[in-house]
Design a protein around this nucleic acid. Structure first.
Lengths: 196, 196
DNA sequence: AGGGTTGGAAACCGATCTGTTTCCATGACT
DNA sequence: AGTCATGGAAACAGATCGGTTTCCAACCCT
């Protein structure tokens, strides 16, 4: 019984883990048991299971971003900061318990794009794209909007490969992102941008 | 009541559609009702729901591949044949009822990579990679193995974007695949390969 | 026409689903 | 000490889950 945090915090944490590990179809009973919270309390804190899905996804956002994104103290060139995301992703995949990007996986399971959980997933992806976009603008990339989307797409593609346990050389995400940045002329030397 | 095909065929078709549209957690009752087949017959034809999941995925393979891959009568250069896959995917996404690659989606929902359905998904992805690989060899690409995996990854990334309904300019898969082929020196003119 | 196979309809099993409710132990505040 | 809010345990509701079984109508072949 984890009785350290508030029932709400315990629920959000257990939900984040169990919805990810077992899918959003896991029962509310099992979830509450894992969180050490009664169903009564759960339904006082959240209107429905669907709301809990969305809120647990949203609450995981900041720590997941902190896990993937380089911090502001990392003052390397934009290209390296971008590639850091893919390196961190590789590390997650290599750990073996990776079941895909939690946001994409949840959206896949929910099917309905208007489900509150799907909306959170969409926002998270936009957040990742925005990060890439900011860095690309810093690097002076020619078409940062398109390139940011392409990088996000590679991120999700690398996730999908891990889910299906396809043959992976490791680092395929980093490799591909780097190839794309190369093609766009985004170099590690800050000033060598705008290459055409 | 679709009574045209055999119960087995009706089950496989209904399973392919409903497992995709509603997820693998849809009930056997609903599935049999949609197929116009009794549960008794279903459990005579398939050992379990899990087996039906796997077999319906496997049975969809050939037609799905025919939908995506260019036929042997398409004698354009390898690069164009490769890009055809991404163009066809774009058309599927544009239709609006796209819920991701059925194989990846099912693998995501099943979680367990040893589930027979996950095994089928893995084989399908390998099949796609193999197609890319064959074409790249034909084109004389330098590292067809890696590039084929990268293209498959882009394919899955484009699927994921469609699932989360992320902002999409349309054609982002084609665009990115083309960029990667450009970087690898795979041109439309058959002989202009091996560019360094 | 008669015998046997096929297969759908539906009841049934125990388990689980989301969501509600009752009851009671605990702890805080005055 | 006595009151009150918090929240866990657990029963409950009606529906559905995967899977099995019974029963019977419709068809096949001769």
């Amino acid at each position: 019984m984890t009785t350290s945090a508030t029932p709400r915090e315990r629920l959000l944490e257990a939900a984040g883990e169990l919805f990810y590990r077992d899918g959003v179809n896991i029962g509310v009973d099992a979830l509450c048991k894992a969180a050490g919270v009664s169903k009564k309390s759960m339904y006082q804190l959240f209107r429905s299971k669907d709301e809990l899905i969305a809120e647990s996804l949203a609450s995981r956002g900041p720590s997941y971003q902190a896990l993937l994104h380089p911090g502001p103290e990392d003052e390397r060139p934009a290209r390296d900061r971008i590639l850091t995301v893919f390196e961190r992703q590789d590390e997650l995949v290599a750990r073996g318990d990776f079941l895909g990007c939690p946001y994409v996986s949840t959206a896949v399971e929910l099917k309905n794009p208007e489900h509150p959980g799907s909306v959170v997933a969409r926002h998270f992806k936009q957040h990742l794209t925005d990060f890439f976009h900011r860095e690309l603008v810093k690097a002076g990339a020619e078409d940062p909007g398109t390139l940011a989307i392409q990088l996000t797409m590679i991120f999700d593609g690398a996730s999908a490969r891990a889910v299906v346990r396809a043959q992976d050389l490791g680092g395929i995400g980093v490799l591909t992102a780097a190839a794309l940045l190369d093609a766009a002329g985004v170099r590690s030397t800050e000033l060598a941008t705008q290459a055409g």
